[in-house]
């Protein structure tokens, strides 16, 4: 009991660290979730496209730009070579279309103009290319038959209007599902970072030279001492996990109740969390026995930085794809 009480005392001193990570989690979580709304209708995915028009924006050229605008998110950036290339590299745009000079005139002459494009090569850009090709194809077919510009535009738009009926069967709100997966993506980081930081601090306090010496000469068996520490760490990890799961019910409750899968996912995090903490504990304990001079405080901060960098960069790259279904896929796959 003495060991456990000491454990709790040190934990109490470090509660702010856990609170800090929780606040970060909540801020990011709420920030991410406030922007999206519920929907169960079909919404076409829209790629990010940049159009660089060297022709005059009238007639056929204008029509092409309007068609692309309708089917994509037009990105507005500085029109300098470096900014454009950077935007493509960092996936700010998926696809860049350079409309050449005299585009309109070439089409009216019945020829097919060559269009330069830049593409990131991912699925968004493949889809963008389909969009562009379809338009150009229809335009080419009709431009051979019709020479009047207004008539040609009308024909093209008429052909493109053809919409297929679509039905979405899932009553699951994918948005809240992706919210849940976003939350757990981030929570795994908060749980890990909080647990590693706190457990390392507590263990290093127990490992301080004078305290260590006192523990050794005390009547308590060192095995019992270590066992209690191990159990306390396990308890702490469990409480931390429970805390974050409870928060998740508060934030994304609907999705949590509706899908058993998410719950499985949270369990997975929990198991991972406990195993991980215990392994830290064990390695720390071994070090204690070897009386290594390793400064575990310094070590923990650095390790934390490492974990932090890995976690956040993974998340950032996932953010990069900017596709809510992507999260959902990860969620679903990890539970299969």
């Amino acid at each position: 009991m003495t060991v456990f009480k000491t454990f709790l005392k040190i934990l109490n001193k470090n509660k702010f660290v856990v609170l800090l990570y929780t606040i970060i989690l909540l801020v990011f979580g709420v920030f991410n979730m406030s922007t999206s709304e519920n929907n169960t209708n079909f919404i076409a995915a829209k790629p990010d496209i940049l159009i660089i028009n060297k022709d005059q924006e009238i007639g056929l050229t204008k029509n092409l730009i309007e068609y692309i605008k309708e089917n994509s998110n037009i990105i507005d950036i500085k029109l300098e070579d470096d900014s454009i290339n950077d935007a493509l590299f960092y996936r700010d745009v998926n696809y860049i279309i350079y409309i050449p000079e005299n585009y309109r005139q070439t089409v009216l002459n019945g020829e097919t103009p060559e269009i330069q494009i830049k593409s990131t090569g991912d699925y968004q850009s493949s889809y963008s290319e389909m969009l562009l090709s379809r338009y150009i194809k229809i335009q080419t077919i009709y431009s051979n038959e019709i020479s009047n510009e207004a008539e040609l535009i009308e024909k093209i738009n008429n052909s493109l209007e053809n919409e297929t009926q679509i039905e979405v069967t899932s009553k699951l709100d994918t948005n809240s599902l992706s919210k849940a997966s976003f939350y757990y993506n981030f929570a795994s980081y908060s749980i890990l970072a909080g647990a590693i930081y706190v457990i390392c601090l507590i263990l290093s306090s127990f490992n301080e030279k004078s305290i260590r010496k006192r523990t050794i000469i005390s009547s308590m068996n060192y095995k019992k001492h270590n066992r209690i520490l191990l159990l306390s760490n396990g308890l702490f990890a469990t409480m931390l996990w429970l805390f974050y799961v409870l928060i998740s019910f508060a934030i994304v409750g609907k999705a949590m109740f509706s899908i058993a899968r998410t719950n499985i996912y949270s369990k997975f995090i929990y198991i991972y969390n406990v195993c991980f903490n215990n392994s830290i504990f064990n390695s720390n304990n071994n070090k204690q026995q070897k009386r290594n001079k390793w400064n575990s405080k310094c070590n923990s901060t650095r390790f934390k930085l490492l974990m932090w960098s890995i976690c956040t960069s993974r998340m950032a790259t996932k953010n990069c794809t900017n596709n809510s279904t992507y999260y959902t896929n990860i969620l679903v796959h990890s539970n299969k």
Binding site: F42, A45, T164, Q165, V168, S170, N323, T325
Partner: peptide, 18 residues
């Protein structure tokens, strides 16, 4: 007339429709 039934939104569903 063709009718498409999908489970949820996404790029794959968009491409099928497209």
């Amino acid at each position: 007339t063709p009718k498409i039934v999908i489970k949820s939104n996404g790029i794959n569903a968009t491409i099928l429709k497209y």
